[in-house]
């Protein structure tokens, strides 16, 4: 994988997945089998496929997906921590705790839960952060796992060159500048691009597309 340009695909896939997961409301799509993470991993795999001349192996899809997941986890943590500290989305947590109380048939447990709810309402930002940190860490681990899955499935879906033969391998010691006159050197064109920022003709080589 060393020769692959995997950094930009992983970064873009990871940032997309992390930002979409961290935005309240939009992030709820992750309730559907971590949809944003699967999408982020698949985007990273697709980008890697597009920028690599040879077929991408399944393992390389997993690796770029895992990288995207790590980046997504970082972005998600960076977005979520301020939301937790400033108690944005507190109502969702309250609803969850109420639901847990409703599931329990044990009156003692219900009383304990009510006390826990009251305590959480009066928590300081630091206490809130400490309480939520284990959940955030678990989420980050899940992000890497599901994004890896997204990268794998992305290669399975988007890599269409699997049955093509690999490009020819040059033997060791093969001259790197062969053929000798490649790329062709064109004579400088008069009245070309002119400025120092111009590209193509006055530098020789192929015109820049």
């Amino acid at each position: 994988m060393n020769e692959l340009d995997w950094k930009q695909p992983a970064l873009i896939g990871g940032v997309i997945a992390g930002v979409l997961s961290g935005i309240p409301g939009i992030g709820l799509a992750n309730c559907c089998f971590c949809a944003w993470l699967l999408v982020g991993g698949a985007i990273a795999a697709k980008m890697l496929i597009n920028r690599t001349p040879r077929p991408i192996k399944s393992g390389e899809g997993a690796q770029v997906g895992a990288m995207a997941g790590l980046i997504a986890a970082g972005v998600y943590l960076a977005l979520s921590l301020p939301l937790i500290i400033f108690a944005v989305g507190e109502r969702f947590q309250q609803a969850f705790m109420d639901q847990m109380v409703a599931w329990s048939n044990n009156p003692d447990l219900q009383e304990m839960m009510r006390k826990a709810i009251e305590q959480s309402a009066s928590q300081t930002p630091a206490q809130r952060l400490v309480t939520q940190l284990p959940v955030l860490i678990v989420s980050a681990v899940l992000f890497v796992g599901f994004s890896t899955l997204g990268g794998l499935l992305g290669v399975a879906l988007f890599e269409k060159r699997r049955d093509q033969p690999p490009p020819p391998q040059y033997p060791p010691g093969y001259p790197p500048n062969y053929p000798p006159n490649y790329p062709p050197q064109y004579p400088p064109q008069s009245g070309g691009s002119g400025g120092s920022g111009g590209s193509g003709g006055d530098q020789g080589g192929w015109p820049q597309g």
């Binding site: 994988m1 060393n2 399944s58 393992g59 390389e60 899809g61 899955l149 794998l152 499935l153």
Partner: peptide, 25 residues
């Protein structure tokens, strides 16, 4: 069906990792 895609992918990933995925260029 997903298991039939995840397993070969991870087998390939481990092979690449062992072959030096983490090595710098």
């Amino acid at each position: 069906v997903a298991a039939f895609y995840v397993t070969p992918g991870l087998v390939s990933a481990l092979k690449d990792f062992i072959a030096g995925f983490a090595k710098p260029k």
